[in-house]
Amino acid sequence: MKKMTELEKDALNEITNIFSYRTSIALEKLIKGNVELSVNKKQIVTLDSSVYSQKSPLMYLGIYSNIRESNLKGNVLLAFPKESALYLYDRLVDLENGSTKVVDDEVKNVLGEVGNVVAGNILGVLNKLLGINSMHTIPSVVPSFGDQLYDFVYFDVEDDKKKAMLIEVDTTFNLDGYEIKGESIMLLTHDSFENLLIAIKKKAGEIK
């Protein structure tokens, strides 16, 4: 991959900000409460050079969705530590915090819907800003220990792993006083990332 220009870097940086903002808005709507957002770290790197930003070997629940049937191909993954994911579920279905201990089909469905809304919002940004139409599959809820989360970041993507690009945002959402640390990760195949850069350039040309 050739080196990115400052314009491309700035544009991608802005896109990650919008991803986080949209995720926060989506969560606000879902929990019908206040969500404050802080971005702790973000990186746009190749998959192999990615440094997992939450090195702690916690158990995570990842909400994973495959992007397909468009000129973007890859995966979107939203990951929370298990306790945070179950807290989110309890909030969404109006249960007392700590009521849910097991990820049954109902929990999977509700968390899957969170993933559906968030993935839809993220891809919607690309559509609205850059005119890239993307579809995503119905999200699945998957368990993972620490950096094994990356198994699902690259899951079912047929491409050269070394060239795939990762847009990763490490975020803290404050839900009415409860802090949820989450990861929003988008993996794009090499060609898809090139398509994204072309769309950015095209958009920049229109603005000029």
């Binding site: 699945s140 809820v141 998957v142 699902f152 899951f155 079912d156």
Partner: peptide, 8 residues
């Protein structure tokens, strides 16, 4: 038990 759960 993970692969099919992830939709494949």
């Amino acid at each position: 038990t993970s692969t099919m759960m992830a939709g494949k």
